[in-house]
Simulated scan of single mutants.
Amino acid sequence: MPPIVLLDDADWRNNFYPFSVNRSVADLRIGIFTQQERWEKFSGNNVYIATIDYLSNLYESISETDAWYVAANVLPNTALLEALSNLHQGEAIQNETQLIAFYGQYERALKLFNHQMDAMCASHHFQHPLSILHAATDMFLMNVSIIHADIALIRSTTQPAVIDTSNRIENADAVFIAQGAIAKHVIINACDGPVYIGENALVMEGALLRGPIAVGANAVVKMGTAIYGGTSIGKHSVVGGEIKNSIIMDETNKAHHGYLGDSVIGNWCNIGAGASNSNIKNSGASVAVWNDVTKTYSRLLHKCGVLMGDYTRVAINSAINTASVMGICCNVFGTGLLPRHLPHFSWGVEKKYAFEQAIQDITHWMAFKKSGLSKHEMNVLKHIFDQSGE
């Protein structure tokens, strides 16, 4: 069986700004898993990542000359895995919207995913249902269905722990508490969707969970937290307050009161006490979201909160505007409603972070969780800083 390589060096990857600027789309956590983890669990094999040049050192490379190159924004299913197995060398799979997969060498795969005509090949049209993420906002828009699929995938191979009798549960059959997790005196309503609590997670007493929800391994849900459906909490993250239809990735803190809705928060972020976001305009009209490719506001949505890049921190009592986009490595503070777009390495709302100070502050925050930046991660951040201008 050829190795599977998730490739995101394609024209759609920039639609995942600000999350794709310092990591591959295959490395973004949606539902319970990252795309790489999801494909590994689904296929039962190691899965690799191929991405743009300045990110390539973050990921393990493969030695084989031929592989199944699959678009990193495509979710796996049985029909797609079967279609891959039927591919001959040099053949591709596509649907109405994009190239899905190619079997062959990396150089040719890269040309095909970037629409270079000299790499044309025999192509099979995929006619089965397929879930594809086309932009960062799709992450929270599709999170309900992805949580359902991920929990079903876990149930197919893993047995849950016994639910503690101190909890009040509605539809206990749809609740999956993993081994080592602690959840006592918690109210869980899984009538509208399943609830997953990962390995060694802690859900404190008085928390209110209404599915579909995924709480990742080693995460902490604090006392009195209210979490509504469509929400994923990443590994080692700490949450409190009110959260609805949002993704919080790994090692991030939203530990205090305040509202977060229809949002995606990256890795290693911190949202200060009392900070809240708007997710709908007062007029009820649609809101446009910042497009970093065109440098304009586009893609109208009825509801959208905030897209917050990795390593960004927001001060206490911040008022985050509807459909806000914050880049990576920002230290955000200011009076009134914050601007709807803040570029990478913003200091406050008008200045640029000094790179050395930004790295020092990130290092302090990562030390709280006994972690730190690797040399390759540091190089990536310096590249982005240098490209971001004054």
Score class of each variant (00 low, 15 high):
Ile188Phe: 05
Val203Ala: 03
Leu202Thr: 09
Gly193Cys: 14
Ala174Arg: 13
Ala174Gln: 15
His185Met: 12
Ile177Ala: 03
Lys184Gly: 00
Gly193Asp: 13
Gln179Met: 13
Ile177Asn: 02
Gly193Ser: 13
Gln179Ile: 11
Ile188Gly: 04
Gly193Tyr: 13
Gly180Tyr: 07
Glu199His: 14
Asn189Glu: 11
Leu202Pro: 00
Asn189Phe: 01
Ala178Asn: 07
Ile188Glu: 02
Tyr196Phe: 15
Asp173Thr: 15
Asp192Leu: 14
Val203Glu: 02
Met204Tyr: 10
Val203Leu: 06
Val186Pro: 00
Ile177Pro: 01
Gln179Ser: 14
Ala178Ser: 15
Val186Tyr: 05
Asn200Arg: 12
Val195Ile: 15
Ala174Thr: 09
Cys191Asp: 15
Glu199Met: 12
Val195Phe: 08
Glu199Phe: 10
Ile187Lys: 11
Ala201Leu: 01
Asp192Trp: 00
Tyr196Met: 06
Phe176Met: 06
Gly198Trp: 03
Ala183Ile: 04
Pro194Met: 10
Pro194Trp: 08
Leu202Asn: 02
Ile188Arg: 00
Gly180Glu: 04
Ala183Pro: 01
Gly180Trp: 06
Ala190Ser: 07
Val175Ala: 09
Ala183Trp: 03
Gly198His: 05
Val203Gln: 02
Gly198Cys: 09
Pro194Arg: 08
Ile188Trp: 01
Ala174Met: 12
Gly180Ser: 08
Val175Pro: 07
Asp173Met: 11
Pro194Tyr: 09
Lys184Ala: 10
Leu202Tyr: 02
Ile177Tyr: 04
Gly198Asp: 06
Val195Pro: 05
Ile197Val: 15
Val195Gln: 06
Ile182Ser: 11
Val186Trp: 06
Ala201Lys: 01
Ala178Ile: 01
His185Val: 03
Ala201Thr: 01
Asn189Met: 03
Gly198Met: 06
Lys184Pro: 00
Val186Asn: 04
Cys191Glu: 15
Gly198Pro: 08
Val186Ser: 03
Ala174Ile: 01
Val186Thr: 07
Gln179Arg: 13
His185Asp: 13
Ile177Gly: 04
Asp173Phe: 10
Ala178Val: 02
Val175Ser: 06
Leu202Lys: 07
Gly193Leu: 13
Pro194Glu: 10
Gly198Thr: 07
Asn200Glu: 12
Asn200Gln: 13
Lys184Thr: 14
Val203Met: 09
Glu199Ala: 12
Gly180Ala: 08
Ile187Asp: 10
Ile177Ser: 05
Asn200Ala: 12
Ile188Leu: 08
Asn189Val: 02
Met204Asn: 11
Ala174Glu: 15
Lys184Asn: 12
Val175Thr: 10
Asp173Pro: 06
Ala181Asp: 01
Ile182Arg: 11
Leu202Ile: 12
Val175Phe: 07
Tyr196Asp: 05
Lys184Ser: 11
Asn200Cys: 07
Phe176Tyr: 14
Phe176Ile: 08
Ile187His: 12
Ile177Leu: 12
Gly180Met: 09
Gly180Phe: 04
Val203Thr: 04
Asn189Lys: 08
Asn189Arg: 12
Gly198Phe: 03
Gly180Cys: 10
Ala183Thr: 04
Gly198Leu: 06
Leu202Met: 07
Asn189Tyr: 04
Ala201Ile: 02
Ala174Lys: 14
Ala183Cys: 15
His185Asn: 15
Ala190His: 00
Asp173Cys: 11
Gly180Leu: 08
Ile197Phe: 06
Met204Trp: 04
Ala190Gly: 07
Tyr196Pro: 00
Leu202Gly: 01
Asn189Gly: 04
Cys191Phe: 02
Ala174Phe: 09
Val203Arg: 03
His185Tyr: 14
Val195Ser: 09
